[in-house]
């Protein structure tokens, strides 16, 4: 029997209090973004011939929405792997209370990651529904963009959780968001194709886990994934590798934090 499920149970019990508000904002967020940027800004973009050409003949809404799906998963993952984790390890110390029972450090890490994956799945699923309502879903393959977005989010959640476990205060979280999450959000091909970046910088996008996620999610939503299956597999492999390494590090740092008290 694995006690990892009991960790998930705790997180679900905690979540029950904010369930309604959370589901509502999961709807509201894509609605606002797709309205303002996809439809509002998109109307201007779509009038420009050069822009339409750069987007490969897509409307801006179609281009933007799947990228935003992956980016939203990243942001939610970053939040979920900082505050609730430092809360359990340093503020309320509920993970230490758990660790005094048969629940192991591994259960605590895997259980929390499983919970984050569940949260990301619901956020991505709601986002996808909103996309479909906006007419931004070009292919039924968009359903696979949900796991792609979750995978993207987990590529952030795992290393950030490893980092969080080394912190006793939230001081450095601002830096994570300001110098990590926000620049990636803006420059990973979410809002404009990376081919628009200066040529020297363009390859740097390969280093952004989000770019791999955006590419995957976009090609799935548009149904063009089959055009370059090898590249799609490379994207998946890179994200999976980050999750694997991140999980290992998270296990190491969370365990040493629990042992230290």
């Amino acid at each position: 029997m694995t006690l990892m499920t009991r960790v998930v149970e705790l997180r679900a019990m905690q979540y029950r209090r904010t369930f309604r508000a959370s589901i509502f904002s999961s709807f509201l967020n894509p609605v606002l973004f797709l309205l303002a940027m996809g439809v509002g800004l998109g109307t201007y973009v779509d009038q420009s011939g050069t822009a339409t050409q750069a987007l490969g003949g897509l409307s801006y809404l179609q281009f933007l929405a799947p990228g935003l799906l992956a980016a939203t998963a990243m942001q939610a993952a970053a939040f979920e792997s900082t505050f609730p984790i430092i809360g359990g390890l340093s503020w309320q110390k509920t993970f230490h209370a758990m660790y005094a029972t048969p629940v192991s450090a591994r259960d605590i890490v895997v259980g929390n990651l499983a919970w984050i994956a569940i949260r990301l799945t619901s956020i991505a699923a709601i986002f996808t529904i909103v996309m479909a309502l906006f007419g931004a879903a070009a292919s039924p393959l968009i359903l696979l963009a949900i796991p792609a977005a979750v995978l993207t989010g987990m590529a952030f959640a795992t290393p950030i959780m490893a980092f969080t476990a080394t912190q006793r205060t939230m001081e450095k979280f601002n830096a994570v968001f300001r110098f990590g999450i926000t620049p990636l959000f803006l420059f990973s091909g979410t809002f404009f194709p990376i081919s628009n970046l200066p040529d020297a910088i363009e390859p740097v996008a390969w280093l952004s886990p989000l770019w791999h996620g955006v590419e995957l999610s976009r090609r799935l939503a548009l149904g063009t994934i089959g055009e370059d299956p090898v590249q799609a597999l490379v994207h998946v492999a890179i994200l999976v590798a980050i999750v694997a390494v991140g999980t290992w590090f998270a296990y190491r740092t969370v365990e040493s934090r629990l042992v230290l008290g």
Binding site: R6, Q14, T94, H96, A100
Partner: peptide, 27 residues
């Protein structure tokens, strides 16, 4: 059973829920 120096209660849960979930950790 362990009573740590610092109360490590879950402030997001009710009094009874704190007991319920703790029992679940013991299977």
């Amino acid at each position: 059973g362990v009573v740590p120096q610092q109360d490590t209660l879950d402030t997001e849960l009710t009094v009874r829920e704190n007991l319920l979930i703790y029992g679940r950790y013991f299977g």
